[in-house]
Computed example of a mutant assay.
Amino acid sequence: MNAARKDPKPLHRRSALAGEAGRASRFVEDALATPEQADSAAFFDVDNTIMQGASIFHLAWGLYQRDFFTTREILGAVWKQAYFRLAGVEDPEHIAEARASALQFIAGHTVAELHEVGQEIFEERMADRIWPGTKALAQMHRDQGQRVWLVTAAPQDIAEVIAARLGLTGAMGTVVESVDGVYTGRLVGEMLHGPEKAVAVAALAEREGLDLARCSAYSDSFNDLPMLSLVGDPCAINPDHRLRAHARAQGWRVRDYRTGRKAARAGLLTGAVGGAVAGAVTAGIALRGRRR
């Protein structure tokens, strides 16, 4: 009986001490919190950098499951993009048509609808595909008081959902025209891909008073070399072979969070769905999936 009466006291003391230690730790962390750095920021690509695979693939698949587009719309987009990709046609009019059709699958739907559905799709298809290592790097910048932006070819609205869910500052993505809150499917400006990312980052830096020499940028793709070369601290994340070679030659940081097999598959996927062809390829995959 005496032993039974004595046991709770040490447990109680240990619990109290643990509580005090936790409060002390939080106090120290708050006291050491770094003020926001007004002149620096970090810029992260999304596909295969923040997230495994292509965000537009996951978005298109989720929208397809919700009957956002028809088989006829898919076939039309697939034909345009496949011809553009496989034939290697460089005719300006055809390129413009291919780019304009890349995000046709959200035409006719409202901005509010895509935002709501985008939250669901993030939980269903994207949350578990976030690379923990890259997420930790983004959080490191946030802990240092830096703003962190996503820069992606995916639609601006879904990019903002991803940024918000990860606790980041914001996102820059491809802007799809809307009239009275309804998407037309037409792009406003160019897709945010390749050199366009560098243009967007430079414009943001000028607007926000950022010193690009003190900024960081992260990407997996050689196509993002203009953005990576714009900042003082570039880093290749899960890089394709061309970016890996360039990063090593320049002495840039390289981080790879994949296994060898995953790295090979991701490289193939990036080539298949990168840039302007991403929307149509995802639609084609979805169509094949339904027919099986």
Rank of each mutant, 00 (worst) to 15 (best):
L228T: 01
I56W: 03
G267M: 09
K9Q: 14
A247T: 13
A31P: 10
R292V: 11
D67W: 15
A278E: 06
Q65A: 10
E190M: 06
F44N: 01
R165V: 00
V117F: 13
G267S: 13
R125C: 07
A272K: 15
E123N: 08
G209E: 05
L225R: 00
I74W: 12
A41H: 00
T110Q: 12
G181K: 15
W252P: 01
A200P: 05
A247V: 14
G194K: 07
S216P: 04
A264V: 14
C215Y: 00
R147H: 03
E90D: 06
R291V: 09
A138M: 07
D91C: 11
V151G: 02
D180Q: 11
E124S: 13
D240K: 04
A217F: 03
G133P: 12
A33N: 07
I50K: 03
D180R: 12
R13A: 15
L137H: 02
L268G: 15
A96N: 08
A4G: 04
G275V: 04
P195T: 06
E93L: 11
T49P: 01
V281I: 13
G22T: 05
P239V: 10
A200F: 06
V89P: 09
A276R: 07
A280G: 08
A171Y: 08
G279N: 05
E36Y: 06
S216N: 03
R165P: 00
T152D: 06
V281D: 06
A217C: 04
F44K: 00
Q52E: 03
K9S: 14
E29A: 06
R72G: 03
H193P: 00
A38V: 13
G274R: 11
S15G: 09
L137C: 02
A82M: 06
V281K: 02
R165K: 10
G260M: 10
A42W: 00
A245T: 12
S178T: 15
Q81S: 14
A77Y: 07
A98K: 05
M1Q: 14
A213G: 13
A263W: 09
A264H: 09
G133W: 15
T169E: 02
G22Q: 08
E73G: 01
L210T: 04
D91M: 10
A16G: 08
P155Q: 09
H12C: 13
Y183A: 11
D233W: 05
R292A: 11
D180K: 10
R66G: 01
G19L: 03
S15R: 13
A153N: 03
G22N: 08
C215Q: 00
V151T: 02
A200R: 09
I56E: 07
V148W: 00
L114Q: 12
K6Q: 11
F68R: 15
G145R: 05
F69A: 06
L17H: 10
G267D: 03
G118V: 01
I50E: 02
V176N: 01
S55A: 11
E206Y: 12
T259S: 15
L114A: 01
M140Q: 13
R26K: 05
H12S: 12
F122S: 00
L63P: 04
D39Q: 05
E120H: 01
D128Q: 10
F122E: 04
S219I: 02
G62Y: 05
G260Y: 09
